[in-house]
Design a protein around this nucleic acid. Structure first.
Lengths: 193, 193, 193, 193
DNA sequence: GATGAATGAGTCTTCATTCAT
DNA sequence: TATGAATGAAGACTCATTCAT
């Protein structure tokens, strides 16, 4: 029998790619260098990823899923007011800690025409919607269209990330209070600033 | 050095580029084809634009400035409630009518590291802030940090555009009501849904 | 290494290769796809053939040997006039029935410099020479240099195949009469058209 | 105005390519090396030839056309017997003098499926047919199907070239007498060997 | 023998940009 | 100002072949 597929190799490739992307930029990073850093041959990379773009996608997906994984617990099982505070804080903190991936997401461009929405994005939306649904059900949140609200929240967070990490290099925490306060007014049924 | 010798020629280049970008995509569109469609020689393009990226930027800038030009009058000189309704409507309508440029904005790639924020973006923010300031001054809007609020609103609109035109092809008007309602609750001092 | 472990497997490889070459072309056909179609692992192919080129060679050799096997009986044990008619007919018919291999022969690339003449080609020449020799000995054929004549006949047949199957897709039978007539005049001692 | 196209550059490219193909082989010769030897930039080659294959084609075409240019005068304006002798001689001599191009022709392979017959080949056939037609008209040549005869003659000559320069390295002149004699018997109406 | 994961060399081509005219 | 021929850097990807299991 031949050698078996090595799941660790996939991780090694992603790790190498992330580091190189961060250090040298996406354009400057070659598939050969990724392979080299991961200690494998160029061609081997293609056994795990179809193309350079797929590596970028995987990294972006990782960011999004890791983000929701870090943030979701913060806004669950608590009252909505705290959920907002904690959620916003966790989201901005996570972005801060992964500024390189935020920049990478800004690189992941649709080649041109319509592109299918990345799966990870859908999962984020779904998780977000589920969180919102609970608060609407329990009556503490205004009964907005959940699909739209989830998108709007994502939009604000992504924009902040872009403003802070792509267009400048400032701490997104400076947006925390205003964002939370706005969300409280927008979402809470009975909130007196 | 991008002088502005013949303003009509500059417009012709932008028009050709926009059409080709829309039809063939940014990558597929060559400087030579832009020149050809505009009826001038390849080298001549460089008398008006320093690079292909500058053409894209000019088109994106045009979109942003045209957007604010179309939207700003809607939320000025009226009460805040109407301002929100009209502003949201105008913004989404304008995006709808310029879906190709929305997609182009998603293409404009920051080479990798930090990029300076496009001038047009700053103007949009400034205009937006001025609009918000007035309502805060007159006391009808909650006294948020204006800078942050302007960014958040931009983030939501840009995200909606992306969801509707890059990741799918749906009418952004479906987001109109929820977005407006949320903004009313968030921004208005005394609003009873 | 190319041992002949399992003769059936060898045949399966050749059969798969021939079909894939025909359907997808030589370049598009990968060793992996040949193995897959034959129901074995990639590496196993190399137990039967040293390289992809050897598979092509084997197929070409098969064609040449099969051709002479089909044609030789037609021009043996009969008078020369009939030998020519039957031989020409059989040769063109066989080519017709194996057009895909004719095209394959046109693919078999001599890497560049001088290449050794394929063994099968030598066998074809030898068989052809033996056939010609008999007719010269018995005095019915003009005493040409047999080596040269055999080559010339091969050249005409191969060229017809190329014209008919590589450069177009026409029936080589349209060349039959003229070729036979020319050969009769050229080879027969006493022939009055 | 910009620089004008330089017809000599095209020749320089072909000359460089031919030399490199001869010295290093087609595979080993890179477009960059062709450009370098011609004293121009890599990209400039593509202003004159769409691809490496087109360069090969141009060289092959040159060979074929040069061949017919060298040979045609030999079999024109003379009696058919001399035409055959001179024509065969000239053809083999020309092949001898351009052995590298003969090998190149053997490299020019159809990618796989049916390929259109090269234009130069058609011209060669046409010229050959015109030569044959005259002798048939004047009654000195047997009234064969001219199209077929022209093909058969090409086939014999090409095969000899291949046998002599691709599969070995021998003087094709050794085929001269037999080929001429065979053609005389085949083509001449009244020939007594 | 059989497997199939791993290897890694290798080049054509594009096209934004420049600059001689 | 306009032209368009010339430049030349740059890298993702394939796939025949190998070899550890």
């Amino acid at each position: 029998m031949a050698r078996k597929v090595d799941p660790e190799k996939r991780e090694a490739i992603l790790k190498s790619a992330r580091e190189l992307f961060k250090q040298c930029g996406v354009e400057q990073t070659t598939m050969a260098s990724i392979a080299g850093k991961a200690g494998i041959a160029t061609g081997t990379v293609y056994l795990y990823f179809d193309s350079k773009a797929k590596i970028i996608d995987a990294l972006c997906d990782y960011y999004l899923l890791d983000n929701i994984k870090a943030v979701a617990p913060e806004y669950e099982n608590t009252d909505i007011q705290q959920a907002i505070s904690r959620g916003v804080h966790a989201a901005l903190k996570h972005a801060s800690e992964n500024a390189d991936l935020v920049r990478l997401i800004d690189q992941r461009r649709s080649i041109g025409g319509k592109t299918n929405r990345p799966q990870a994005d859908r999962i984020v939306q779904k998780t977000l919607r589920e969180g919102l649904a609970k608060y609407i059900e329990e009556g503490s949140m205004r009964p907005y269209n959940i699909v739209v609200m989830a998108e709007l929240i994502s939009g604000m967070l992504e924009w902040i990330s872009k403003v802070c990490f792509v267009w400048s290099d400032v701490d997104p925490m400076r947006y925390e209070d205003t964002l939370a306060e706005m969300l409280r007014h927008a979402l809470l049924k009975n909130y007196k600033g």
